[in-house]
Design a protein around this nucleic acid. Structure first.
Lengths: 340, 340
DNA sequence: TTGTATGCGTTATCAG
DNA sequence: CTGATAACGCATACAA
């Protein structure tokens, strides 16, 4: 076994190039401030030693980590994985690393803030609407850390946000059903924990009212964004004396679960029931029937939120006024909806 | 605007508690080495100041980061997102953070090694079979960094690994079709870039040979693990003079795409063609028809790989002999396969 | 253009 | 049980 050589430091490089450590540091961060000859000599020494900068030391000195933290309630959800992918790409372009946290035990407000306070991350990308952003930020006189909330309508206007106009999207989805001639329309609701989901319900109700259509309470079903509640919703519907002819579902997974359950009972989509989902997950297009849905601009969300956060961290966006960016969802018509 | 207070240091706490910084440090890391009275005093000062340890300084001093790096070719793939979730949970339990990297530009071998060498991460969880683990590790006399490769059969026995027995799983999948009475069986192959996928093919061929069944080249279709190649495979099949009665697909996404395409041409699954997939992604159970598949133990992979890596980092597993852990996939019979 | 000196915040070592 | 001190590796102010 070869004895493990310790990783070279800036000093080792300096010695090898016959310059001071300061010069090596300069070659690395502002090469133009160093004469060409020494620059080359240092570069050669760097290559020869295989030197890599020690980030811990650099972070300590610079008081930053060139790292952002992405927090989501459930990274296992495909929705977030696509966002995460975009986040990593955008961060990488700016030279940032990405740390990931998901909701586990303990007080999230506390350990999320810890990450930032402890100099492990320079900013927070928050995808968890159930968290109190105000609390994370230390309240009224808090440290006011770089924070961008995404995917949730944030009721707190003091927090930077990148979000989808859920109300408009839900309105559009519902109008699609109405335009198809449906009048008996139900809504499989998203969990109302966070504002964005509540907005979907409002958009639905708005569209119904605008069209003069009744909102039937027995067709307003509470779901929890997973396949299981979609199935439960199907069962709930089967127990009703009358079925709606169309359903707007708060996300695709629930739509898929519901369609699946109803088919078992002989209710075919779209023959007997039109269904529109929300999100446009990867399989939506290949489900049977291919699912009509509102597509979330997931990559955009991840990318825009990340660049915004980094702009804030680097002071390119003034800290004074909070930033609010709104993205639009897009109607994707496939085969799970049809005229009445 | 309240002037931003700088975050308190261990010195601030020490002053407030009338002790030295060393004592504060001891209270935090080994409380039993400090008298009860001072311990309480220090604790109170910590609470009062809202002190959080500066990780950069700690890392610099301790020469570790208490962070691991997960590298995957494509974090947007739902497969990895579930693994990542398990990784985060397992890491968190041991007090580690998780950094995520995905394949972007540049030489991955180089920047992955950078992460470790630069003291940003203490170990690497590698899910990308196309990467040269040996290279990452610096070759024969390399630094030999803590590294666990997962999800791919690693041909290099010098690298620690946690993997699924793909050959046995593919063999089992194929036998399932054979037991159902099928004799005309095709295989939609995974990309052969990495060994694990190649193992699936070997498992298939083995099972066919054991059963004395012919392997028909025109039914051996090369895919690329996405829905698109599933569709292409469907078209390829439609162009043949004779169809197989059963197909073993290298993953669920391809199976779904293929079934979808064939249905458009009037070939129904499982009526005309039995299909078994691989992975058991979330929608497999709710596809029409619900998909028979080999379930990958994704959570197990993430958890076991993580705990193993941390054990290695912390020296609980001797560095001498590489660790190789094999997990088994499980046959999940649903409705996309039926007797001939 | 380059070098010297200093400090970032922490913990381990060594005295007391 | 506690305190003083040094060192981890880097980047900058200042001096040359």
């Amino acid at each position: 076994m070869v004895p493990t050589r310790k990783t070279p430091t800036i000093q080792d490089v300096a010695r090898k190039a016959n310059v001071s450590a300061a010069t090596v540091s300069r070659v690395l961060s502002s090469p133009e401030r160093v004469s060409e000859s020494t620059r080359e000599r240092v570069q050669a020494a760097v290559d020869a030693t295989g030197y890599t900068i020690n980030q811990a030391a650099r972070s300590l000195r610079l008081r930053n980590a060139r790292t952002i933290l992405m927090a989501a309630p459930n990274i296992g959800n495909p929705y977030y994985s696509i966002v995460l992918d975009a986040v990593i790409r955008a961060a990488s372009e700016r030279g940032y690393s990405v740390l990931v946290a998901t909701r586990i035990g303990g007080d999230p407000n506390r350990w999320l803030a810890d990450y930032l306070l402890s100099n492990r991350a320079d900013g927070l990308l928050l995808f968890d609407g159930s968290l109190n952003t105000f609390g994370i930020n230390g309240g009224e006189q808090g440290p006011n850390l770089p924070l961008v909330a995404a995917y949730d309508e944030i009721p707190d206007p003091r927090v930077n946000s990148v979000l989808v106009d859920n109300r408009a999207a839900a309105n559009r989805a519902t109008r699609h059903l109405i335009e198809l001639g449906h009048t008996r329309i139900g809504h499989l609701m998203s969990p109302s924990r966070n504002q964005s989901n509540h907005e979907r319900r409002i958009g639905f109700e708005q569209a119904m009212q605008e069209a003069g259509l009744p909102i039937r309470p027995e067709w307003m079903i509470q779901g929890d964004h997973n396949l299981g509640t979609g199935i439960a919703a199907g069962e709930h519907l089967l127990a009703q004396s009358q079925l709606p002819t169309a359903m707007f579902c708060g996300n695709d997974e629930m739509a898929i679960g519901m369609i699946h359950r109803l088919r078992l009972a002989g209710i075919e989509c779209p023959r007997d029931l039109s269904v529109i989902g929300f999100d446009d997950v990867a399989v939506a297009a290949y489900f049977a029937p291919p699912l009509t849905t509102m597509r979330q601009p997931r990559e955009d969300i991840g990318r825009v939120a990340t660049t915004t956060l980094i702009d804030i961290i680097e002071g390119e966006i003034p800290a004074g006024e909070p930033v609010h960016i709104t993205l639009r969802a897009e109607l994707v018509v496939r085969e799970s909806t049809r005229p009445i």
